[in-house]
Amino acid sequence: MLASFMRNRHLIAQLTRREVVSRYRGSWAGLAWSFFNPLIMLVIYTFVFTTIFKARWGAGSERSHADFALILFVGIIIHGVLAECILKAPALVTNNVSYVKKFMFPLEILPWPIAGSAMFHAMVSFLVLLLAQVVVGQGVPWTAGLFPVVVAPLLVVGMGVMWLIASTAVYVRDIAMVTGLVVTALMFLAPVFYPASALPDAYRWIILWNPLTFIIEQGRQVLIAGNAPDWVGLTIYLCFALPFAWFGYAWFQRTRKGFADVL
Protein backbone atom coordinates (compact mmCIF):
# COMPACT_ATOMS: atom_id res chain seq x y z
CA MET A 1 0.00 0.00 0.00
CA LEU A 2 2.72 2.47 0.99
CA ALA A 3 5.00 1.30 -1.82
CA SER A 4 2.27 2.06 -4.34
CA PHE A 5 1.93 5.56 -2.92
CA MET A 6 5.67 6.25 -3.08
CA ARG A 7 5.97 4.82 -6.58
CA ASN A 8 3.13 6.99 -7.92
CA ARG A 9 3.50 10.05 -5.68
CA HIS A 10 4.09 12.49 -8.56
CA LEU A 11 1.01 11.25 -10.42
CA ILE A 12 -1.02 11.44 -7.20
CA ALA A 13 0.09 15.04 -6.70
CA GLN A 14 -1.02 15.96 -10.23
CA LEU A 15 -4.38 14.23 -9.84
CA THR A 16 -4.93 15.89 -6.46
CA ARG A 17 -4.24 19.32 -7.94
CA ARG A 18 -6.66 18.58 -10.75
CA GLU A 19 -9.31 17.34 -8.30
CA VAL A 20 -9.14 20.57 -6.30
CA VAL A 21 -9.03 22.95 -9.27
CA SER A 22 -11.71 21.16 -11.32
CA ARG A 23 -14.29 21.73 -8.58
CA TYR A 24 -14.13 25.49 -9.12
CA ARG A 25 -13.30 25.57 -12.84
CA GLY A 26 -15.55 28.01 -14.68
CA SER A 27 -16.70 29.85 -11.54
CA TRP A 28 -16.04 33.56 -11.18
CA ALA A 29 -14.35 33.38 -7.77
CA GLY A 30 -12.44 30.16 -8.51
CA LEU A 31 -10.48 28.76 -5.58
CA ALA A 32 -11.72 31.62 -3.40
CA TRP A 33 -14.92 29.58 -2.96
CA SER A 34 -12.92 27.10 -0.89
CA PHE A 35 -12.58 29.96 1.64
CA PHE A 36 -16.06 31.48 1.28
CA ASN A 37 -17.94 28.19 1.58
CA PRO A 38 -16.80 27.30 5.12
CA LEU A 39 -17.16 30.93 6.18
CA ILE A 40 -20.78 31.08 5.00
CA MET A 41 -21.46 27.66 6.52
CA LEU A 42 -20.08 28.84 9.87
CA VAL A 43 -22.40 31.87 9.88
CA ILE A 44 -25.48 29.79 8.92
CA TYR A 45 -24.93 27.07 11.51
CA THR A 46 -24.26 29.67 14.20
CA PHE A 47 -27.49 31.52 13.42
CA VAL A 48 -29.64 28.40 13.25
CA PHE A 49 -28.40 26.70 16.39
CA THR A 50 -27.95 29.72 18.64
CA THR A 51 -30.81 31.97 17.48
CA ILE A 52 -33.52 29.59 16.27
CA PHE A 53 -32.89 26.44 18.33
CA LYS A 54 -31.41 28.35 21.32
CA ALA A 55 -28.86 25.55 21.63
CA ARG A 56 -26.24 25.45 24.38
CA TRP A 57 -23.12 23.33 24.66
CA GLY A 58 -24.11 21.10 27.53
CA ALA A 59 -26.47 21.66 30.42
CA GLY A 60 -25.96 24.94 32.22
CA SER A 61 -23.28 26.07 29.78
CA GLU A 62 -22.44 29.76 29.90
CA ARG A 63 -20.59 29.82 26.59
CA SER A 64 -21.29 32.67 24.21
CA HIS A 65 -22.72 32.27 20.72
CA ALA A 66 -19.23 32.73 19.30
CA ASP A 67 -17.81 29.96 21.51
CA PHE A 68 -20.63 27.63 20.50
CA ALA A 69 -20.04 28.38 16.83
CA LEU A 70 -16.33 27.56 17.07
CA ILE A 71 -16.96 24.30 18.93
CA LEU A 72 -19.59 23.34 16.37
CA PHE A 73 -17.36 24.23 13.45
CA VAL A 74 -14.56 21.93 14.61
CA GLY A 75 -16.95 18.99 14.42
CA ILE A 76 -18.20 20.04 10.99
CA ILE A 77 -14.65 20.32 9.61
CA ILE A 78 -13.68 16.85 10.81
CA HIS A 79 -16.93 15.29 9.64
CA GLY A 80 -16.38 16.89 6.23
CA VAL A 81 -13.11 15.01 5.76
CA LEU A 82 -14.71 11.58 6.09
CA ALA A 83 -17.90 12.68 4.34
CA GLU A 84 -16.05 13.70 1.17
CA CYS A 85 -14.26 10.36 1.09
CA ILE A 86 -17.47 8.36 1.50
CA LEU A 87 -19.60 10.38 -0.93
CA LYS A 88 -17.08 10.30 -3.77
CA ALA A 89 -15.98 6.69 -3.33
CA PRO A 90 -18.80 4.92 -5.28
CA ALA A 91 -17.96 6.72 -8.53
CA LEU A 92 -14.17 6.48 -8.30
CA VAL A 93 -13.92 3.50 -10.64
CA THR A 94 -17.20 3.73 -12.54
CA ASN A 95 -16.47 7.33 -13.61
CA ASN A 96 -12.96 6.46 -14.76
CA VAL A 97 -13.61 3.67 -17.25
CA SER A 98 -10.82 4.95 -19.49
CA TYR A 99 -8.32 4.30 -16.68
CA VAL A 100 -9.68 0.79 -16.18
CA LYS A 101 -9.01 -0.04 -19.82
CA LYS A 102 -5.40 1.10 -19.52
CA PHE A 103 -3.57 -1.96 -18.31
CA MET A 104 -0.62 -0.02 -16.91
CA PHE A 105 -2.61 2.60 -14.97
CA PRO A 106 -2.41 2.06 -11.18
CA LEU A 107 -6.12 2.11 -10.30
CA GLU A 108 -5.35 1.76 -6.62
CA ILE A 109 -4.19 5.39 -6.44
CA LEU A 110 -7.62 6.80 -7.35
CA PRO A 111 -8.65 7.37 -3.70
CA TRP A 112 -5.51 9.39 -2.91
CA PRO A 113 -6.54 12.55 -4.85
CA ILE A 114 -9.92 12.52 -3.07
CA ALA A 115 -8.16 12.26 0.29
CA GLY A 116 -5.83 15.09 -0.73
CA SER A 117 -8.77 17.25 -1.78
CA ALA A 118 -10.61 16.51 1.48
CA MET A 119 -7.53 17.49 3.48
CA PHE A 120 -7.05 20.66 1.41
CA HIS A 121 -10.58 21.85 2.11
CA ALA A 122 -10.26 20.87 5.77
CA MET A 123 -7.13 23.01 6.07
CA VAL A 124 -8.87 25.98 4.41
CA SER A 125 -11.74 25.61 6.90
CA PHE A 126 -9.11 25.31 9.63
CA LEU A 127 -7.71 28.72 8.61
CA VAL A 128 -11.24 30.16 8.67
CA LEU A 129 -11.63 28.83 12.20
CA LEU A 130 -8.34 30.39 13.33
CA LEU A 131 -9.40 33.70 11.80
CA ALA A 132 -12.73 33.50 13.64
CA GLN A 133 -10.92 32.81 16.92
CA VAL A 134 -8.83 35.95 16.46
CA VAL A 135 -11.88 38.05 15.49
CA VAL A 136 -13.89 37.03 18.59
CA GLY A 137 -10.87 37.61 20.81
CA GLN A 138 -10.50 34.02 21.91
CA GLY A 139 -6.94 33.70 20.69
CA VAL A 140 -5.23 30.81 18.94
CA PRO A 141 -3.52 28.25 21.21
CA TRP A 142 -0.14 26.88 20.22
CA THR A 143 -1.65 23.41 20.13
CA ALA A 144 -3.69 24.42 17.04
CA GLY A 145 -0.65 23.50 14.95
CA LEU A 146 -1.24 19.86 15.94
CA PHE A 147 -4.65 19.76 14.27
CA PRO A 148 -3.37 18.10 11.03
CA VAL A 149 -1.74 15.41 13.18
CA VAL A 150 -5.06 14.78 14.94
CA VAL A 151 -6.96 14.48 11.64
CA ALA A 152 -4.37 12.24 9.92
CA PRO A 153 -5.58 8.93 11.47
CA LEU A 154 -9.13 9.69 10.30
CA LEU A 155 -7.79 10.20 6.79
CA VAL A 156 -6.28 6.72 6.98
CA VAL A 157 -9.74 5.36 7.82
CA GLY A 158 -11.13 7.35 4.89
CA MET A 159 -8.64 5.70 2.54
CA GLY A 160 -9.72 2.24 3.67
CA VAL A 161 -13.38 3.19 3.24
CA MET A 162 -12.75 4.49 -0.29
CA TRP A 163 -10.92 1.36 -1.42
CA LEU A 164 -13.72 -0.81 -0.04
CA ILE A 165 -16.61 1.22 -1.43
CA ALA A 166 -15.02 2.06 -4.79
CA SER A 167 -14.34 -1.57 -5.65
CA THR A 168 -17.61 -2.96 -4.27
CA ALA A 169 -19.69 -0.26 -6.01
CA VAL A 170 -18.51 -1.59 -9.39
CA TYR A 171 -20.49 -4.77 -8.72
CA VAL A 172 -23.22 -3.38 -6.42
CA ARG A 173 -24.39 -0.01 -7.76
CA ASP A 174 -26.90 0.44 -4.92
CA ILE A 175 -24.06 1.47 -2.64
CA ALA A 176 -24.13 4.93 -4.21
CA MET A 177 -27.72 5.33 -2.94
CA VAL A 178 -26.74 4.51 0.63
CA THR A 179 -23.64 6.63 1.14
CA GLY A 180 -25.62 9.86 1.63
CA LEU A 181 -27.61 8.24 4.44
CA VAL A 182 -24.42 6.91 6.03
CA VAL A 183 -22.79 10.35 5.98
CA THR A 184 -25.86 11.94 7.60
CA ALA A 185 -26.03 9.22 10.24
CA LEU A 186 -22.33 9.62 11.05
CA MET A 187 -22.88 13.34 11.60
CA PHE A 188 -25.81 13.01 13.99
CA LEU A 189 -24.35 10.01 15.80
CA ALA A 190 -21.13 11.89 16.57
CA PRO A 191 -20.62 14.80 18.99
CA VAL A 192 -20.84 17.41 16.23
CA PHE A 193 -23.88 19.35 17.47
CA TYR A 194 -23.75 18.22 21.09
CA PRO A 195 -21.15 17.02 23.61
CA ALA A 196 -20.75 13.28 24.11
CA SER A 197 -21.79 13.74 27.73
CA ALA A 198 -25.26 14.88 26.60
CA LEU A 199 -26.16 11.36 25.47
CA PRO A 200 -27.68 9.01 28.09
CA ASP A 201 -25.31 6.29 29.32
CA ALA A 202 -27.45 3.58 27.74
CA TYR A 203 -26.84 5.01 24.25
CA ARG A 204 -23.35 6.45 24.63
CA TRP A 205 -21.74 3.33 23.19
CA ILE A 206 -23.26 4.26 19.82
CA ILE A 207 -21.19 7.40 19.40
CA LEU A 208 -18.12 5.80 20.96
CA TRP A 209 -18.05 3.33 18.06
CA ASN A 210 -18.32 6.18 15.57
CA PRO A 211 -14.85 6.74 14.01
CA LEU A 212 -15.48 10.51 14.12
CA THR A 213 -16.09 10.79 17.87
CA PHE A 214 -12.55 10.49 19.20
CA ILE A 215 -11.05 12.66 16.45
CA ILE A 216 -13.65 15.41 16.97
CA GLU A 217 -13.03 15.47 20.71
CA GLN A 218 -9.27 15.60 20.19
CA GLY A 219 -9.69 18.34 17.58
CA ARG A 220 -11.55 20.46 20.13
CA GLN A 221 -8.86 19.80 22.69
CA VAL A 222 -6.11 21.22 20.48
CA LEU A 223 -8.13 24.02 18.83
CA ILE A 224 -10.49 25.24 21.55
CA ALA A 225 -9.19 24.08 24.93
CA GLY A 226 -5.52 24.55 24.06
CA ASN A 227 -4.56 21.13 25.41
CA ALA A 228 -2.20 18.60 23.87
CA PRO A 229 -3.96 15.65 22.23
CA ASP A 230 -4.21 12.22 23.79
CA TRP A 231 -1.13 10.72 22.15
CA VAL A 232 -1.81 7.24 23.50
CA GLY A 233 -5.38 7.37 22.20
CA LEU A 234 -4.25 8.61 18.78
CA THR A 235 -1.66 5.84 18.59
CA ILE A 236 -4.26 3.18 19.43
CA TYR A 237 -6.64 4.72 16.87
CA LEU A 238 -3.91 4.59 14.22
CA CYS A 239 -3.11 0.98 15.12
CA PHE A 240 -6.68 0.09 14.14
CA ALA A 241 -6.87 2.50 11.19
CA LEU A 242 -3.80 1.18 9.37
CA PRO A 243 -4.90 -2.49 9.24
CA PHE A 244 -8.37 -1.33 8.16
CA ALA A 245 -6.85 0.73 5.33
CA TRP A 246 -4.64 -2.19 4.33
CA PHE A 247 -7.67 -4.49 4.28
CA GLY A 248 -9.51 -2.02 2.02
CA TYR A 249 -6.48 -1.84 -0.27
CA ALA A 250 -6.17 -5.65 -0.40
CA TRP A 251 -9.89 -5.97 -1.18
CA PHE A 252 -9.56 -3.42 -3.99
CA GLN A 253 -6.58 -5.22 -5.51
CA ARG A 254 -8.36 -8.57 -5.32
CA THR A 255 -11.60 -7.37 -6.91
CA ARG A 256 -10.09 -5.13 -9.60
CA LYS A 257 -9.56 -8.11 -11.90
CA GLY A 258 -13.24 -8.05 -12.83
CA PHE A 259 -13.62 -4.28 -13.30
CA ALA A 260 -13.08 -4.32 -17.07
CA ASP A 261 -15.63 -7.13 -17.59
CA VAL A 262 -18.32 -5.43 -15.51
CA LEU A 263 -17.79 -1.93 -16.90
Results as ranks from 00 to 15, higher is better:
residue 164 L to C: 15
residue 210 N to K: 01
residue 162 M to F: 10
residue 115 A to Y: 02
residue 183 V to C: 07
residue 194 Y to T: 07
residue 83 A to F: 00
residue 91 A to S: 15
residue 219 G to T: 06
residue 45 Y to E: 04
residue 8 N to S: 04
residue 232 V to S: 01
residue 145 G to N: 01
residue 159 M to G: 09
residue 83 A to E: 14
residue 62 E to R: 13
residue 4 S to M: 09
residue 189 L to E: 02
residue 260 A to V: 07
residue 252 F to L: 09
residue 210 N to Y: 00
residue 156 V to Y: 03
residue 203 Y to D: 01
residue 96 N to E: 12
residue 259 F to H: 07
residue 212 L to K: 08
residue 94 T to P: 05
residue 145 G to L: 15
residue 232 V to N: 01
residue 67 D to I: 03
residue 246 W to L: 15
residue 128 V to C: 11
residue 76 I to L: 15
residue 23 R to N: 04
residue 259 F to W: 04
residue 41 M to Q: 09
residue 90 P to M: 02
residue 133 Q to H: 06
residue 184 T to A: 14
residue 67 D to R: 03
residue 58 G to H: 03
residue 112 W to D: 02
residue 137 G to L: 11
residue 12 I to A: 07
residue 126 F to L: 10
residue 146 L to H: 04
residue 48 V to P: 10
residue 29 A to C: 01
residue 40 I to D: 00
residue 14 Q to G: 08
residue 179 T to F: 06
residue 156 V to H: 05
residue 177 M to R: 10
residue 119 M to F: 15
residue 99 Y to K: 12
residue 111 P to D: 12
residue 208 L to T: 10
residue 256 R to V: 12
residue 232 V to T: 08
residue 224 I to M: 15
residue 244 F to K: 01
residue 42 L to Q: 08
residue 24 Y to E: 05
residue 38 P to L: 05
residue 139 G to Q: 13
residue 263 L to T: 07
residue 215 I to V: 15
residue 10 H to L: 12
residue 9 R to Y: 12
residue 29 A to T: 01
residue 194 Y to K: 06
residue 123 M to L: 14
residue 202 A to T: 13
residue 171 Y to W: 10
residue 218 Q to A: 07
residue 205 W to Y: 14
residue 55 A to H: 11
residue 146 L to R: 02
residue 124 V to G: 01
residue 174 D to E: 10
residue 151 V to N: 04
residue 78 I to A: 09
residue 46 T to P: 00
residue 221 Q to R: 15
residue 55 A to Q: 12
residue 204 R to F: 03
residue 177 M to F: 13
residue 163 W to I: 00
residue 253 Q to D: 12
residue 19 E to K: 08
residue 127 L to Q: 12
residue 87 L to D: 02
residue 137 G to F: 11
